[in-house]
Design a protein around this nucleic acid. Structure first.
Length: 575
RNA sequence: GCUCUCGUAGUUCAAUGGAUAGAACAGGACUCUUCUAAGGUCUUGAUGUAGGUUCGAUUCCUACCGAGAGCACCA
């Protein structure tokens, strides 16, 4: 039985002794650590029905608890309007530190999704187009959620769905055809190739909007891509698709992510048309102006086109087919799709249609929308060119980290500070991912390049730095042959210990709420508490408190590394 | 116009219906003979407006004001 269940049963016993009963006894963490380790509002909840003074009732409950208190409880008291605050014993925290150091990598894991297979789809970049910041966000969130769910006992499968057919491809191919002369001579020069594709898409896209003639040409290419009926187009298509996909894999490596399944729109187009047409007969879809639509109005949504009058499936139809295909190939218990918020309303319509066709699949599918990335000046626009691609963001950040590291090293007197080659990349990825994960998913993020690069305060590098510094203390202890132990207890329980004990709860809730930001917020608090401790107390020195402090530092390192892992962030050896 | 999301310090974000609304950045003042100062300590400063529900509302409900996204053949 964990400590929370023990405390709850103490409360329940006290209530029974007072001939009272509560439907549910809730324990919460007090907002301030000085208010104890756990708190219950049970007296406030019950007082109303009993027409009693809440503080008085709380005192009675406390008196009962004190009669047969368990050893883990150091103190129980009434506070504020009638809260019952529990203070746990030093021995309890000592035992927990030993526990954390024993569980190591798995400290904080839980079993809430035990026996489940969960499929997550995220990132979803489009071949021929840049890997932009939206994809980076989807990836950061999706990877973190995957790890949270995995840490909750599920078997996790990662999927990436890529739009390798559709009008955007036709626009890019049209652009390529017009600028063939500029095609990079060296096809292995990834950077040049990607830049070339980007320019080609931009050109095709602007011509599409410019006049009807270009528009018609692009639409013709679009049909040919679907039909694979034109050799020249096929060749450009295959080449461009391959370039893009190889490039994406390089980025995934840097980001520390990988996929078990890849789905492509091209594989779904035929299925999509068939699936929709089959259900026209059943009355789920209707013909309208030559197109096939789903009348979402009947369900409080809006109407969307599933098959165009050209006979081509839209995003909606392909999404519908994808939903089925995922269950057919992966057989998950749940399927989670992570995309930008702008898709949210379409997705509702698609899922409403899916509900009519395969209700059990639709019921096991969940959409999570993430916000857009805005510049302080407003939304990024591909037309005005105020676009930072995901790739350029990563590269610029790595560059800035290198500068920062050089500056810092100059200030340091001991020059023998060895830093691994991959560290700037680890730090840069941490800076970017943290800035995307620190706030609730679903909200837009105002991205301030300078701030993200400053690497200070509320940031990924701060978390890494705190961890690295603690690790170096452990190194020092090791070299002095001082081992961690929880035998000599401190005179007072430190704030950091109280926070360490909360980690499993934080993980469980973050996974349940699909909210990596809970982890981020917690880690900042934890790191900050450790940094205060570090500044105040000496750890690896020859004093009786040293073994306990080392055990504490070690538990901090384990917890931080686990938390950072859940965010998809690596911990460097040194920085 | 309709639907959805959202309004918290100067700025960017927190706060399972609970206690004195927390951080970070920016501003001001301190702090390296010590284990990494990318650190620590102190300090100024906020719940859009008006009602309602509740012992208690940043949180739930209603209206208004303001911002963003979506609303038929693009994804």
């Amino acid at each position: 039985m964990n400590i929370q269940d023990k405390l709850k049963s103490q409360i329940n016993e006290a209530l029974r002794a007072l001939f009272l009963k509560a439907d549910k006894v809730a324990l919460e963490y007090p907002g301030e650590l000085i208010h104890g380790d756990y708190s219950s509002n049970i007296a406030l909840v019950l007082a109303k029905g009993l027409k009693k003074n809440p503080r008085e009732l709380a005192s009675q409950i406390v008196a009962e608890i004190q009669k047969n208190a368990i050893p883990e409880i150091a103190k129980v008291e009434v506070a504020g309007p009638g809260f019952i605050n529990f203070y746990l014993s030093k021995q309890f925290f000592a035992t927990m530190l030993a526990e954390i150091n024993k569980e190591k990598k798995h400290y904080g894991w839980n079993q809430q999704f035990k026996g489940k297979k969960v499929l997550l789809e995220y990132t979803d970049p489009n071949p021929f187009k840049a890997f932009h910041i939206g994809h980076l966000m989807s990836n950061a969130i999706g990877e973190s959620l995957s790890r949270l769910i995995e840490a909750s006992g599920a078997e996790v499968k990662r999927a990436n769905y890529q739009g390798d057919v559709g009008l955007h491809i036709a626009k890019a191919i049209y652009g390529i055809m017009l600028t063939k002369a500029e095609m990079p001579a060296d096809e292995n020069d990834n950077k040049a190739v990607v830049a070339f594709l980007g320019r080609a898409y931009a050109l095709g896209s602007s011509l599409y909007d410019k006049d009807e003639e270009n528009k018609a040409k692009i639409q013709a290419i679009n049909k040919k891509v679907y039909a694979r009926s034109d050799n020249e187009i096929n060749e450009l298509y295959d080449k461009g698709r391959r370039w893009s996909l190889e490039h994406f894999e390089e980025l995934y490596k840097i980001l520390g992510t990988h996929f078990d399944y890849y789905f492509f729109e091209s594989q779904l187009a035929n299925d999509a048309v068939k699936l929709v047409e089959e259900n026209v007969e059943k009355g789920i879809f209707e013909k309208s102006d030559g197109a096939v639509v789903f009348h979402g109005e009947n369900y409080g949504l809006h109407t969307r086109v599933f098959i165009t009058k050209e006979g081509l499936p839209t995003y909606e139809a392909k999404e519908l087919a994808l939903n089925r295909k995922k269950f057919e190939t992966v057989h998950p218990d749940f399927s989670i799709v992570i995309t930008a918020n702008e898709i949210t309303e379409y997705f509702k319509v698609v899922m409403k249609a899916a509900e009519q066709i395969f209700p059990e699949l639709a019921a096991s599918t969940k959409h999570i929308g993430h916000g857009m990335l805005l510049l302080p000046t407003g939304k990024m626009s591909s037309r005005t060119g105020s676009v930072i691609t995901g790739e350029s963001l990563i590269m610029d950040t790595i560059g800035r980290v290198q500068e920062k590291m050089a500056e810092t090293n100059e200030k340091r007197e001991k020059g023998e500070h060895v830093v691994q080659e991959k560290t700037p990349q680890q730090v840069a990825v941490a800076a970017i991912k943290y800035s995307m994960l620190r706030q609730s998913p679903g909200k837009d993020i105002v991205y301030d390049m300078e701030k993200s690069l400053s690497l200070e305060g509320d940031s990924g590098p701060y978390l890494q730095y705190s961890t690295v510094r603690a690790k170096s203390v452990l190194e020092k202890a090791k070299s002095q042959n001082v081992k961690g132990a929880v035998t000599f207890l401190p005179s007072e329980t430190a704030e950091i210990e109280k926070l360490l004990v909360r980690f499993p709860d934080i993980v469980e809730r973050a996974a349940h709420e699909y909210s990596p930001s809970d982890i981020a917020t917690y880690l900042i608090t934890l790191a900050s508490a450790f940094n205060s401790f570090y500044a105040k107390e000496q750890i690896a020195v020859d004093i009786p408190e040293a073994p306990y402090r080392i055990a504490l530092t070690s538990a901090f390192v384990e917890t931080m590394q686990n938390g950072l892992w859940l965010l998809g962030i690596e911990t460097p050896e040194s920085m």
